[in-house]
Amino acid sequence: MTADLTCRRGVERLMDYLEGVLGAAERAAIDAHMAGCPRCVAFVEGYVATPRIWRAATAAAPSTETAAALRRFLAARR
């Protein structure tokens, strides 16, 4: 199984691998593949960076005016 695992198969299983829901055999197969595959290591770096980059790039905060409008809106309906 180890010898047969392709990059494509590793990528398909990557989320489950990272979430720790894979069986031991499949996990070991991916570990073995990654140990000898710089492309997969580099791919995984981008894959795990993606949520972090999107979190930072979309971290909007309400403006003072938005917060004030919320309070006016609620006060009118209480």
Binding site: R39, A42, F43, E45, G46, Y47, V48, A49, T50, R52, I53, A56, A57
Partner: peptide
């Protein structure tokens, strides 16, 4: 493949 992780 590594470039994506450096996008920020």
């Amino acid at each position: 493949l590594r470039a994506a992780s450096q996008a920020d």
